[in-house]
Design a protein around this nucleic acid. Structure first.
Lengths: 189, 189
DNA sequence: ATAACAAACTAACAACTGTTAGTTAAATTT
DNA sequence: AAATTTAACTAACAGTTGTTAGTTTGTTAT
């Protein structure tokens, strides 16, 4: 039994490096150096560089899928569903900022099978999001703007939140959630 | 005199490739292959791989700077300034989708001098944006939400617009501008 | 004590990287 | 017609890439 698993350590530090320079610009020697070991030693714990990327991305992608599934099947109004979606998206992002960067920027470097799986998950996520928005428009809870514009303006902000949080004087999380939800749903004017 | 300059051609096709896989994952041989020439021939037109990146990024960064400078010094209300900012941001992005992707994802691979210049320009851009928002809050035109949250929710959407445009059944540009401005400023509920 | 295992190491590999040097052929200028 | 320029080429370079093989060392289980 160990306090921290080396494999986890490799994945964590890799996510941090991938976020800084991108998957392709980080070498196995870079990762090894950050852990103060030799590159070859990494292969006692992981099969390949791409496997590290898979371990970083697929877990968090699944978390988003579970999150939206639970919300979609709940008995809330469309508006409440959207609010919960935003809150949970913020929660997941702040807990996994580095992984979120990899998800956004390096998904195209996943191996074939995982790439297909990822794209499927992303499409399904967006489709469920779309359904909630459409239901909200139909019920009059949401303005009748172009559906894609609505989805895009919400998701683009949520997906790049990792770029902003922690940059300036650390914003209180609850305040962030409150103001961000207001800004995204009710606007700023 | 030539109809199309080879150097421009190299920059254009590189931006397209960089967008797909990222700067580091694209080799000079990849770029050459896309132009149906040999890698060494590229050096008749450009000094280095990094110079290509500079040519892609710095031009569009300057365009954003000019855009916000003109708006900032105009005599409009804060709200009108924001509206114009959104419109111009959309215009520039749709005219330079590939370059926008490079700007967002590969700026850290710029050579030292240009990296510094880019970061300076970006900070100044955000600072001018911040000033407009603060003036709007002071005048009561804009809601009193956290300033950083407002800036972030607007800029994150605008900066990643390239990811969405052209994906689905091509949205009319004027409709996009209208609905996006509404969504960003007045919200969706 | 001995066996088994985990996790580090050294050394090496073939492929690929950005880039340079020198050459050639065609187009343009003098 | 001769001279120059442009833009392609081949060949090669030194360094880096992800990865494998085989070995060593310290820890845990028998």
């Amino acid at each position: 039994m160990k306090t921290i698993d080396r494999k986890t350590e490799i994945v964590t530090i890799s996510a941090k490096l991938f976020r800084q320079k991108g998957f392709s610009a980080v070498s196995m020697r870079d990762i090894a150096l950050a852990l103060d070991i030799k590159a070859a030693s990494l292969y006692n714990h992981i099969k390949s560089k791409q496997e590290i990327l898979v371990l970083i991305i697929i877990d968090i992608a699944k978390e988003f899928t579970q999150s939206i599934n639970a919300i979609a099947k709940s008995k809330n109004t469309s508006l409440t569903k959207l609010e919960k979606l935003i809150e949970q998206h913020i929660d997941i992002t702040l807990r996994n900022a580095d992984a979120m960067a990899c998800l956004n920027n390096d998904w195209m470097h996943l191996p074939d099978d995982e790439l297909k799986a990822y794209i499927k998950m992303r499409n399904e996520y967006e489709e469920k999001f779309r359904k909630i928005v459409k239901a909200g428009i139909a019920s009059g809870e949401i303005k009748n703007l172009n559906v894609e514009v609505i989805i895009f303006s919400l998701l683009s902000t949520l997906r790049t939140l990792y770029l902003w949080y922690g940059k300036k004087s650390a914003l209180n999380i609850e305040l962030l959630k409150a103001d961000m939800t207001k800004a995204l749903l009710k606007g700023i004017v």
